[in-house]
Structure formats: C-alpha cells, structure tokens
Design a binder for these strands. Sequence first.
DNA 1: TATGAATGAGCTTTCATTCAT
DNA 2: AATGAATGAAAGCTCATTCAT
Lengths: 219, 219, 219, 219
Amino acid sequence: MTPPTTTDTGGKRRRNSETTRLNILDVATSEFADKGYAGARVDEIAERTHTTKRMIYYYFTDKEGLYQSVLERSYSRIRERERELDIEGLTPSESIRAIASLTFDHHENNPDFIRLVSTENILRGEHIRKSEALNNLGNPAAELLERILTRGQADGVFRTDVDALDVHMAISSFCVFRLSNRYTFEALFGRDLTAPAHREHLRTMLGDMIIAFLTSDAT
Amino acid sequence: MTPPTTTDTGGKRRRNSETTRLNILDVATSEFADKGYAGARVDEIAERTHTTKRMIYYYFTDKEGLYQSVLERSYSRIRERERELDIEGLTPSESIRAIASLTFDHHENNPDFIRLVSTENILRGEHIRKSEALNNLGNPAAELLERILTRGQADGVFRTDVDALDVHMAISSFCVFRLSNRYTFEALFGRDLTAPAHREHLRTMLGDMIIAFLTSDAT
Amino acid sequence: MTPPTTTDTGGKRRRNSETTRLNILDVATSEFADKGYAGARVDEIAERTHTTKRMIYYYFTDKEGLYQSVLERSYSRIRERERELDIEGLTPSESIRAIASLTFDHHENNPDFIRLVSTENILRGEHIRKSEALNNLGNPAAELLERILTRGQADGVFRTDVDALDVHMAISSFCVFRLSNRYTFEALFGRDLTAPAHREHLRTMLGDMIIAFLTSDAT
Amino acid sequence: MTPPTTTDTGGKRRRNSETTRLNILDVATSEFADKGYAGARVDEIAERTHTTKRMIYYYFTDKEGLYQSVLERSYSRIRERERELDIEGLTPSESIRAIASLTFDHHENNPDFIRLVSTENILRGEHIRKSEALNNLGNPAAELLERILTRGQADGVFRTDVDALDVHMAISSFCVFRLSNRYTFEALFGRDLTAPAHREHLRTMLGDMIIAFLTSDAT
DNA sequence: TATGAATGAGCTTTCATTCAT
DNA sequence: AATGAATGAAAGCTCATTCAT
C-alpha cells in the first residue's frame, strides 16, 4: 500500500511518481517552514501541489510522516553542502573563519531550514530524535572543526579549554539567531539583522569574535 | 460585555476578578510555551484553569488576544528584572561579563519565555509589532550596555567597530540558542547544553568570548 | 422579585426605575427591529442601555419577555395615533382617502414598527397571539373604516362585495410592502420605493386605487 | 478543498455529488424559511440532511454562503415560472388579470419563498444585492406587464399616470402581504387570509381592484 | 497511480442567563 | 435598585483522514 521510501526509480513510469513525491515535499517544506507544524494545513499543502490530498497520504502516511520527511530532506541538504567544504592550504584561523562564513551563508540562503529547526525545537525534537536517516548523516562541519581545532591547539595558537562542539555552538547560535529571532529583534530594537549592510558587518564580526576568542589566553 | 483591558483594579471587590485573569494568564503562558500558538488549545487552557472557557473570552476576547497578553506580560517581566541590574563600581569588562551572565541566567530561569519568543518569531513577530505596551517598555539591558560600551571605547579598552546592539545580539544569540535549540543540538551531537556541568562551562565561555572580542584589535 | 408591570409610578424614587425600564425598551425596540428576534443580542441591548444586563432580566424576565413588551408598546403607540383620527365633515370617499394617507404616513414614520411586524410574522405571530394587552387594544382604524364603508355602501357610492377588513388589508398591504420589501424590490428593479418623489406618487396612487375600486361596479 | 460553485455536472460520477448539494439546499430552504437567517441552525439543517454538517461547509463555505445559494435558487424558480406566462389572445385587461392571478397563485404555492424574502428584507437585502446570479435573471413578469400596460395605454383604456413597476408593486404587495403578514393580521382581526373561502374572494378582489384602478380616469 | 466526495472528532467562539455582593 | 463576574450549553466552523471509483 505504501511505496518504497528509497527512491530506486528505474522504469519510465516511476519517474512521474518520484516527481509527485518531490513536488509534495517542496510544497510541504515551505508550508511547514511558514506556519510551523500545528499551523500548517494538509489541505493547503495539497492545494499548492500538482496532485491531490490522497497522494500525500499515499506517500507519507500522515501529516507527521510528511513532516518527518521534510525535516530529513532539509537536514540532508545542509549536510551535503558541508561535505563540500574545502580548507586545503588554510591556516587553522583561516579555516575557522571559512567555516563560520560558510555556516553564516548557509543559513542566509536557507531561511526555510532555520524555521523548520525552530519548529522542531518547539516540538522538543521528537522527530529528529526518532529519525534513523538523520542519525546516519554524520556532521561534516563539526568533524572538520574538530580536526582544525585540534591542530590549532597542538600548534599552540588556540586556547585549549574549548572543544569543537563548543565552537560549533558559538558559530551556530550567532548564525541561527540572526535569522530565527530577526522579527522580535527588529520589533524591540528597530534593527533589521538581515539588511544587506548589516549582514556583511555581522559576518565579519562573527569571524573576528570566534578567532579573538580562540586565540586569547584561557583565564 | 468585555471587561476593561487596563487593569485598574482598585477596590477590594476586584481582587477576585484579577485573580481569575492572572490564573488564566499563568496557564496560558505555559500552554503556549509548550505547544506554540497553533498547537495550544483553548479547551486545554480552560481545563487547567480554575474557571471556564467562557472567562478566557470574557477577559481576552479571543485566542489571539490571550496570546498577545501572555507575550506582553512575559516581556514585561524580563524587562523588570533587567531594570534591577546594578554595575556600580565595576570596570567596563567586569560589567559586560555581569550583563552576559545575567542574560544567561535569565534565560536559564525562564525557558517558557524563550519558547514563547520562538513561537512569536515563527509568527513573524506580528503580535510583538502590534503591541503598544511592548513598544513603551524600553530595553534596560541594551541601554546599559550602550553606556558601558561607550565608556570602554572611550577608555580605549574596547574595539570601536561594534555598537551596543551588536554586542547585545552576540550575547543573546548564545543564551537563546542554548535553550531554544537544545533539542536538535542534542539529537545531532549528543550533548545536552543544559546539563549543569555544561551550563557552567558555557556561562564562563560566553563571558570570555565577548571580552576577548571587545578587547581585541579591530582588523 | 419582578416589579409590577403596570407603571403606576407615584413616589419620586420610582421615577428613576421607570426611566430605566423605558430606556431598555427604547434600545430593545431598535435592536429587535434592526436584527430580528434571533439576530438581536441581549448583550448588545445592555451595552446601548444606561444600565446593565441584569436589569433587563429584572424587569423583563428573559429575552422573550423583553421582545413581547417591545411588541406591545409598539402596537399600542400605533393604536393611539389611530384613535386621534378625525373625519368629521368628510364624504365617505374623502374619509377613505384620509385613512389611506394616514396609514401610509404612519408606516413611513415608523419603520421600526414595520420591521418588528415582519419579525413577528417570521415567528408566526406566537407572541402577538399570546398578548392579552394587544387583544384589548381594539382597532380604531378598522372600526372607523367599518363605519365609513357602511355609510358609503348605504349611500350607494361604494360597491357592496367587500367589507372593512378587505379594504383595510388592501391599504395595509400597499403601505407595509413599500417599506418592508423595499430592499429586495430595489435590488430587483432598481427603484427605491421610499425616495421622496416616489413616496408622493405612491401615496396618491393608493388613494386613487382604493377609491376607483370602491366606486366601481361589482362584476 | 472547496468544490466548484458552478455546477458543471457532466459525467455520471457527479450525480451523487449534485444530489448531495440539492438535498442540502432543499433542507436549508425550509429551515431558513422557517426560522429566518439568524434563527436557523446549521446543526439542524445537517441533521435533516442525508449527509453531515461538514458537507454543508464543503459545498457552501459557510452559513452565509448556504443562505445565499438558497435565496438564489428560490428566486430562479419563480422567474422560471414567470417565463412560462402566456397571454396570447387576451385583451390588456384580461392579461392584467391573468398576471395578477398568476402572481397570487405563485405566492400561495410558495410560502417558503415569501418567508425567505421577508428574511432577506430584515437583512436589508444585503445578499440579494451582492448576487450576480440574481442580477442576471431579468424579471419576466415585470417586462410582460410593461408591454401590456403600454398597449392598454396606447389603446386609451388604461390611465397613463402609472408605469409597469407601479402596477407590479400594487399586485405584489397585495399577494405578499396576504401571506407574509397573515399571522399578525389574524391575531389582530381574527381573519385567516389564507382560508380557502377568503383566498378566492381575495384573488377576485385583487383583479377587480387593479382593473378598476387602471381603467379609471386619472385625477 | 490517481481523484472528488465524504467524514467525525474536535476546534474556537457565542449566547442567554445567573450568582454574589 | 443595581452591578461586575461567572457560567453551561450550544453555535459555527475546521481539521486530518478515508472511501468509492
């Protein structure tokens, strides 16, 4: 009754089916990102799709299954990008800066993803925790960071009282907040964190801050 | 039909009414924080209240009005705490550290507030923008930061290419992320950012990072 | 628990109470006329009143009692006006014309009354039927008509195959329809039956029609 | 989410759907006619239907949409009947009498329609005004009347100070009042305007009155 | 593989009415 | 004689989901 999740499309007729699936996922991604899990409407998703509501249930079982698939695909994409990261020939500091900038830009270019993550955290991560797909993805950025940090610490240029996840968290928090909290921030302080001028300032500031921190003496 | 929004309680008779109102607000705060705006149920809120559903509409007009009131009260409380901040006799660096720690602890102690802010950002800040009450609150922490930063910059100890809102954003992002994104972070990296041991580590790290940054040379 | 319905106000203190009652009736009349029985809101009536909702129940028991009182008072007023009718010295034809014109103007000047009657007919007259007050009012206009018609018929100027109620009905239907059905009529035919120019034309036409009919030969 | 409003039924499969729609309309017509707009209950309508409440919203969006559809269909039906009117070979006077009788009988046979019209007038015609469907129906009876009246006036048998709409209004008011105001009329005067004996008397009287008027001299 | 029609449970909201003071 | 607070029942409406074809 439910088609294989793995998309081993082969014959011609299947191509159409895969298109339908992807079309649904695209629409659902934007809808969940836009309204959150509870706020998203299956009807609305179906309407913006090239198919009917029935197909959503056929491919994804229920609203939750659809959401889970959306979440998994969104994370997979980010991971793919991270895997392309190349720091060949850079010093540890330059590398860290590169990673920070890449994360910064990733978020800038994927606001839907950020919103999905917010939604998932409102749900206390119950879906990401259950997802086997996500648990097998690994974390290229964090792993790369680990190598760079270790090298920098061995070289004596980086302080040693922090580990890769600490740094990763510092970078992520800055990048995520800028987008995820932009609305309340602007309402309270009148500053649009995503305005082009500010964006550049903040990208530089993030690199400076992380490097200043890593190269300072532990107190 | 609808009681005055302004809580001009004065006589003794009103005490009861005010109690009801506050009771509803308390329950609604936890419900909205727990489930988000769309996920929260008026029925559920009513059930956990000492009154009936009808009273919610009597005092707050509709679900949205209730949510708005919850949001306003939550922000007001944070602002009140910030107003108590006292940095008398501290150096600029010590002051910054104090503010960072205070923000860190505020968030730690008010997880509901953080979740409410996430929800409001999913709604693109439409309520906070409309709220006159919130627009008149001011931002004690940001204003204090402004004074300290200016002094530190005048003293030549702080770099001059950042302003108070930049610093405020850096501090907030770190504190907010630790709580708001704890679930996805833990699922992905296996680290609980709120575990006591880590909490202390991160509080110190935040202070170190901000100070390292502010006292480093602008590049 | 309920105050006397008959308004034998005497002392000073009661005057206030009677004012309250009348104020409620005024507001309720306009509200019921405006929205119909089911469409009217007790809350809305209370709000437009100088008192509170509790008083409505105190004086009129419930929504139905209030409606009944409104209906009774409205009919009483019309009857009072009719009682003032004076056809002294007019011929039967002139008298009929006078009655037709008076009815026409009554309705023109009491649109609320017409709407109330529509509402009561939607309710199949269940309240007017129950009202003892209304059953004791008599029908001055119909009774007067009776006398005139009888005289005209005896004089040989009026046809004899109609009675007073037939004529009364013909006059009323014309006058009532012009107001009660003005909205659908205008929507369908683009003519506003209440526009001043048309009003005068129709008043004359009504007199002409009734007289033409009464003075024509029975077929 | 919502099915097409235009009933482009064509294939066999749709028959079922159209049946459901019509069934709802039938029940709703009687319910709105019975209780008025505000007094009618969607739940009640659903119960008397062969489907569920959900279907009402599926096909008609909301209570107002349902009411609007009921109104449109009711008017359409009357218009259809009017279109069948045939006065071939009758004199102008005979034709007018035929139209008056037809209108009289239409109303007699469609008491629901009369009540619906009352309700719509209580609502100040807001739906009939908005309805494009109703604005394109035309008014066969009024148009026919126009032709007959013009002919009669040209022949010198009809007075010339009235137009077709005046006559139409006179006829309609008499026919509508007899049904729409029957309850208050009976309560006040003890006469049932719809009793068979009276019905015949009134039908004749209406014809006599209109003809007497039209053939009398303008004063 | 696809679709329009249908559904029941549950959601937000409203209403006439009453209580405590 | 008067009032603000409170209420239960029911109203209109929406949602995720499934059926028949």
